[in-house]
């Protein structure tokens, strides 16, 4: 369904070139969820915006391919992209308020999406909106379509955003930290909803998150990003059972876990790298507990360590 090859998105700032995404490759099959995991500034959100070709200036996609159903999105015209966005490719963001127009009624916002992409009447769009709100678990949708976003809770707003994203039956859903702004009980409801809708509709989903718990419960495939690059990719089962990259191991070790009492946590030393830093060797080197001489001179390539598991580390076997 989606095949990304060697995607590079750079930002040309006054302070120099920021290589936010520096050559990443992944693919997502129909009905599959790929989780893209990483800490702030690692390039995961810029990857999502790149797929939609919505990278804000001074950012630019400078190389690679984004093949969606065999077609390279980087060769489409702006009007062809506009027909795709919100239609065959949809997106759900972290903060639902940024995706909603505060002065438009809920019903009108959903209808707008439908009218934009489908040949239907306003009455049909209204009926379809009610049906969508019902599907995303909004009580009394006939009344809700007359309300404004500020009248709803964060959880209900995110359900509206999901309804809008699903309005045109997308084949690919990009969800960027869709539950990070929500309370834990609402987060669980929203993830359950997304999982159920994805099953029903067999969408391919790119789930961007920093939460390894969400990854374990919602994704089948996972890619770990660090400093603009994928440092490990594997099935979720493989990654949690035998993490191959020292960064992945560090992330898993640093988590406090429910029902376990440890004296101390094992953090990763040092700081999350700034996107402005440039590297000759491995960018994880300053924080890595397991360095050998070659790490400082050359960057390792992703290599297959187990069938289906790829690790970018000189020490990986």
């Amino acid at each position: 369904m989606l095949q990304v090859r060697d995607l590079k998105t750079y930002f040309f700032t006054a302070k120099g070139v920021v290589k936010a995404v520096d050559g990443i490759s992944f693919s997502i099959k129909k009905g599959e969820t790929l989780a893209l995991v990483g800490e702030s500034g690692c390039g995961k959100s810029i990857t999502a915006l790149s797929l939609l070709r919505l990278v804000p200036p001074p950012g630019k996609i400078v190389g690679g391919q984004i093949r969606f159903n065999g077609e390279d999105l980087l060769y489409l015209s702006e009007s062809e992209m506009r027909r795709l966005r919100g239609n065959r490719i949809a997106m759900v963001f972290q903060e639902p308020m940024t995706a909603l127009n505060p002065v438009l009624r809920i019903g009108d916002q959903i209808s707008e999406v439908l009218l934009q992409h489908q040949d239907i009447s306003p009455g049909e769009a209204r009926d379809a909106s009610i049906k969508l709100l019902h599907q995303v678990g909004i009580p009394a949708p006939e009344q809700r379509i007359r309300e404004f976003p500020h009248q709803l809770s964060g959880g209900l707003r995110q359900r509206i955003v999901i309804a809008m994203a699903l309005a045109c039956n997308p084949q690919l859903l990009i969800a960027d930290e869709p539950t990070t702004a929500l309370d834990v009980t609402i987060q669980a409801q929203i993830m359950e909803l997304l999982g159920r809708l994805q099953q029903q509709r067999q969408m391919a989903t790119l789930l961007i998150t920093h939460d390894l718990g969400v990854v374990a419960e919602s994704a089948q495939q996972v890619a770990i990003m660090y400093a603009g690059l994928i440092v490990e990719s594997a099935s979720v089962a493989q990654l949690f059972a035998a993490p191959g990259h020292p960064y992945t191991r560090g992330l898993l070790a640093s988590l406090p876990r429910l029902g376990e009492k440890r004296d101390r946590l094992s953090p990763i030393d040092g700081q999350v790298p700034s996107p402005l830093e440039s590297h000759t060797g491995c960018p994880f080197l300053p924080r890595c507990p397991d360095v050998i001489p070659i790490c400082s001179s050359r960057y390792p390539q992703l290599q297959e360590t187990e069938p289906g598991q790829h690790v970018r580390c000189w020490r990986a076997e």
Partner: peptide, 14 residues
């Protein structure tokens, strides 16, 4: 109990 149930646990296949 409900709060604890809602916490996503980093162990696949639960």
């Amino acid at each position: 109990e409900a709060l604890l149930n809602a916490v996503p646990i980093p162990i696949p296949g639960r």
